[in-house]
Design a protein around this nucleic acid. Structure first.
Lengths: 257, 257
DNA sequence: TCAAAAGTGTTCTTATTACACCCATGG
DNA sequence: CCATGGGTGTAATAAGAACACTTTTGA
């Protein structure tokens, strides 16, 4: 005795293979239709770092549902579009950010998460240097803005859950890999990078130990330039050595100071 | 100028909110339908450990598509079913494994990955003690069997990609958390656990250092029992201390011997 | 000359590595 | 009595933690 669901598996929508002889093709298609009435979306968590605070990029929704709320930039995926491509396309549509490499985090699929019907969403995240990009809200996003993760507005759908998950995985990742450098400007001071890691990991490090460890990793290059215009001793500016970083990725590291 | 896609966002399938005055409700629903013709599935990677080898549970497909191939136990998700629930339900339907806690790994969404139409799949994984469960293929699974990850049959869909991804994340996870104990019988020897980690991490450890580190974690309890019937010195049997494990989870650990 | 942040070294403690022989059992 | 895998300790090295004062600049 097969359930409808099991019968479905005997059926190819496109090939119309007739396996269960007692069913007509049209009745099989009826069963299949019960499943093929879902949609999926991508939701992007874009992290930035500014003023010593970890930030996330949100858009102001100019469309239903949840029109007039700040939300993660996300939208439905076309049926003929790969997920990873969709994540990039949606981000560009809504915020103008082009060619941002996005990495998948997790999928969220509660039955009632979307008022349109059954929509599961695949969450992606990216890290960008806020200084290097202009944010231009477009499409149905009326505005796009950085929010400190400490001062978030009320978010629609399950976006808060997604964001909390994203922050948690970013934190875990940052502890194991020299990730996060992507958030800093091209040239940066050691103090900046310490504050960055303190913000990400929500911890406080000893300056001497932090510098010792960081420099011993041999990932940074002294640019021989100095910070200017600060009412205190100027800090040395470093840059990130991409080549050395590649090697490092494999061996792994740990930021358990 | 809005694209159809953008218009869609102005539309609630259920609420029928009429935002764009120039469109009739029925034409909006037409647009919406373009998106709501997808389905999603779950695919489960169930790991076991036996005879010194890491194993994965596969089913023999008795249904199209790919009838007659060994595949990951997976199936379409009902429209009114949460993802996590679906993963457990599908596993039980196909293999008889009840109440197995499954954790989400990743979603796979290439456009052509399923011959029925657009189906994205959410991969889950679980670790089980092979000795404690009976595998009973049912529904459209004609058979269910453990395969060593070193001797896999050809897999349908993108199941190989999913499996490779699952093994990789399991490996990374095992290095950071005392995971994998779930794969051993209730009472186990230190040699067994060493072999397990060697299989997972594909590495060779020094017996003395491995034991020292493992015992210093204070996760194991000596049962004071001994292995029997082996033609050599009997090994002490240990069990896993769930309580101490809980604490440990937070502090984290590393298996970089 | 003061405020503000940058920069720097040493000691102590803890974890990791490398390494070789005796022990208990079944056949 | 022998083959087989179980079981053990120590020394050397490397990594992490704790800790306080001097330096350079702009205002």
């Amino acid at each position: 005795m097969l359930t409808n669901h099991q019968k479905l598996a005997n059926l190819s929508y496109f090939c119309e293979i007739n396996i269960d002889e007692t069913m007509t093709i049209s009745s099989k298609q009826e069963i299949l239709k019960d499943f093929f009435h879902a949609a999926f979306s991508v939701d992007n968590v874009v992290f930035g770092f500014d003023e010593g605070d970890l930030k996330v990029l949100l858009i102001y929704r100019g469309a239903e549902p949840f029109k007039g709320m700040w939300a993660l930039p996300g939208d439905l995926v076309y049926l003929d579009e790969d997920l990873d491509v969709a994540a990039q396309r949606v981000l560009q549509d809504l915020t103008g950010l082009k060619n941002i490499f996005m990495e998948q985090i997790h999928s969220f699929g509660k039955v009632d998460r979307h008022p349109f019907g059954r929509v599961i969403t695949v969450a992606y995240y990216a890290l960008i240097k806020t200084q290097d990009y202009n944010i231009n809200a477009s499409s149905w996003a009326e505005e796009a803005k950085w929010f400190s993760i400490k001062e978030l507005p009320t978010l629609p759908f399950d976006h808060l859950e997604i964001l909390v998950y994203a922050i948690k995985s970013f934190k875990e990742k940052a502890r194991r890999q020299p990730i996060g450098f992507e958030l800093l400007p091209k040239n940066f001071t050691l103090t900046q990078i310490q504050h960055l890691f303190e913000a990400i990991l929500d911890a406080k490090f000893d300056t001497r130990n932090f510098r010792k460890k960081l420099l011993s990793m041999d990932l940074l290059v002294d640019t021989k330039k100095l910070e200017k215009g600060k009412a205190h001793r100027p800090a040395a500016l470093y840059k990130f050595d991409q080549r050395k970083f590649q090697k490092f990725q494999k061996s792994g590291f740990s930021f358990d100071l």
